[in-house]
Every structure is written in C-alpha cells, then in structure tokens.
C-alpha cells in the first residue's frame, strides 16, 4: 500500500511525537475547547447538509402549526386574546418558542445514536479539554436551526397578519430563543448520557413534548386555564420564553422593566424573565455535569 513512498518518509510520519499537540498542561484550554467545539459542530452541519430532511420537516411543521391553529381560532370573538391582539399575533410567539423547544429536546438523539454505534467512544478516548464541548456543539447547531425556523415563522406570521417586531424586538426574541434552547439542549444531552438507549430517550421526549406545550401559554392565555393548570403554566420555562416575546409582538414600546408576564402570584418584568431563563440554564448545566464526567462502562 505504501510502495510509492520512501520508507524514510513513512518513518517520519509514524514516529511518535508527544509534543505535536501543544502541551495540554500549560496551554490555556479555551483554544482547545473552541477547536473541538467547532469541529463537532461542523460534523453536525455536514450531516444536515447531506441529510436535509430534518431541516425541511423543521420548517414545514411550525408553518402547519401557524396555519392550522390560526384557522382553528379564526372565528374567536375579537379581543378574546387581549385587546388589540389578533390570534395570529398571539400564536406566533407560542409557535416560535415551541418549535425551538422541540428541536432542542431532540438534540440528545444524535448523541444517543453515537453512543449506541460506538462513535461517541472516539470522542471519549480523545483528550477533550471538556466534555461540555459536546454540549456546546449541539447547542450551536440547534441554535442555528432554531434561528432559521424562527425567521421563517416570523416571516410567515407577518404574512398571516401578526405584524413584524422592530430590530430591538427581533434581537430580544433571538436572545430568548437562545436561552431556552441552551437549557433544553443541555437537558436532552444529559438524558442522552444517562438513559440506557434511544427507545427510552424517545419515550421521555414523547411524554414531555406535548404536555409542556399545553401546560404553557403557547396556545391560550393563562386566564383561560383551570387554576391548577395556571400554576403549572406559571412554573413552565416555556411560558417564561413565550410571554416576553408576546409582549414584544403586542407592544412597540416595550422596555426592560415592562411587566411582560402575569402569574397567579405576581407580575414579571422583561428583565426578571431573562434572569429566570438564565437561572434555568445554569441549573441544568450544573445538573448534567456528573453525567458528562462519568466514564462510560
């Protein structure tokens, strides 16, 4: 196989050289972390590019949510969803958040398949600077997908009569989508490391996905709900992502201290909601740490 190459060249290629990678002890591992995260992210995008069906389905689905739910409530009395809020306007934030949430919830599946096929061993025997790079890569990937989906939803909603938030509003929506995707992606990856197989993971995704949708304010405001559901919806992180976006859709003049969300107990300002989402992310990232560190038997 190597007839064409001189044996001295073979020798130089195959000779051990412990210093080929920068010495891991003295090297600031941030560079390493970025390098491995980018490489893992790139793999996910190559997969997406060569198997684009996930992306296509991911764009068609929220579009159908918008059209179907929009039609379902199209004859609702005007003003039912708040003064000056058409159902299209009401629905768009719910679909944005729910779509990002579903995508993030599924983030663990590719990792689970990597585990089952043994590809993950490749990553685990490598001197990764941190196994959070696996989480980071998935997050970057899901974020990118979610942003594409969000853009499509915002655009489609605008056509369906929801209007278009301003530039600051769009940036705020991006921030909120990022925060919800980060936490849920990390959670899903934690499950992918902890559960025994993809069947179990799919089961968990299945029993979480729709209930969390219905126990949030995505499709109907809190005031429509039974008291017990109001309590659950007020604890549901999805609600904390949906309500500020909805406020942005309804009010051109929103600010960091606008009260964007009412719960049975008290109102939350835009800033507080962001803090809640940050706390949610921090909690999950901490919780999955032992799962990542664990060596796989």
């Amino acid at each position: 196989m190597s007839q064409s190459i001189s044996s001295s060249k073979i020798k130089s290629v195959l000779t051990p050289n412990p210093s080929i990678s920068k010495n891991s002890e003295q090297n600031s591992s941030l560079g390493d972390f970025i390098q491995e995260t980018l490489a893992l992210t790139q793999r996910l995008f190559i997969q997406l590019q060569r198997r684009p069906s996930t992306l296509i389905a991911g764009i068609i689905q929220p579009f159908m949510w918008l059209v179907l739910f929009g039609a379902l409530f199209s004859k609702a009395p005007s003003g039912l969803f708040g003064t000056d809020l058409s159902y299209a306007k009401f629905l768009a934030p719910g679909v944005i958040v729910f779509t990002a949430f579903s995508g993030a919830l599924n983030a663990g599946l590719p990792v689970m398949f990597d585990r089952e096929f043994g590809f993950l061993n490749r990553l685990l025997v490598a001197p990764l600077s941190s196994r959070y790079s696996i989480v980071a890569a998935s997050t970057v990937y899901i974020i990118a997908l979610s942003f594409i989906q969000t853009a499509v939803i915002i655009f489609a909603s605008a056509i369906l009569g929801a209007g278009l938030p301003g530039l600051a509003g769009l940036s705020a929506i991006a921030l909120i989508v990022f925060l919800i995707v980060l936490g849920v992606t990390a959670l899903s990856l934690g499950l992918a490391f902890a559960l025994p197989g993809h069947i179990e993971l799919i089961a968990v995704i299945f029993v979480t996905n729709l209930p969390l949708l219905f126990a949030s304010t995505a499709l109907a405001p809190l005031s429509f709900m039974a008291d017990w559901l109001q309590v659950i919806a007020s604890l549901n992180p999805l609600t904390y992502a949906i309500e500020p976006i909805r406020y942005i859709y309804g009010h051109g003049d929103w600010a960091i201290n606008s009260i964007v969300m009412d719960t049975p107990w008290f109102g939350f300002s835009f800033g507080t909601v962001i803090l809640v989402l940050l706390a949610f992310d921090a909690l999950i990232l901490l919780a999955i740490q032992p799962l990542l560190r664990r060596r796989f038997a």
Partner: peptide
C-alpha cells in the same frame, strides 16, 4: 476499537479532520 464506528455521512478526510481537532493538532 474492535468495532469500527464510522460516521457514514462523512468522507474519510472529514473524519480525520474531526479527529485532528479532537486531539488539538495545530
């Protein structure tokens, strides 16, 4: 490893590039 676990979608070169990054080659 005893069982090869290829990512069928990648090319050989792409897999090697990934591997190189995981080992932090300059």
């Amino acid at each position: 490893a005893q069982e090869v676990a290829p990512d069928k979608v990648l090319t050989g070169r792409e897999l090697l590039k990934l591997q190189a990054a995981l080992y932090h080659l300059p």
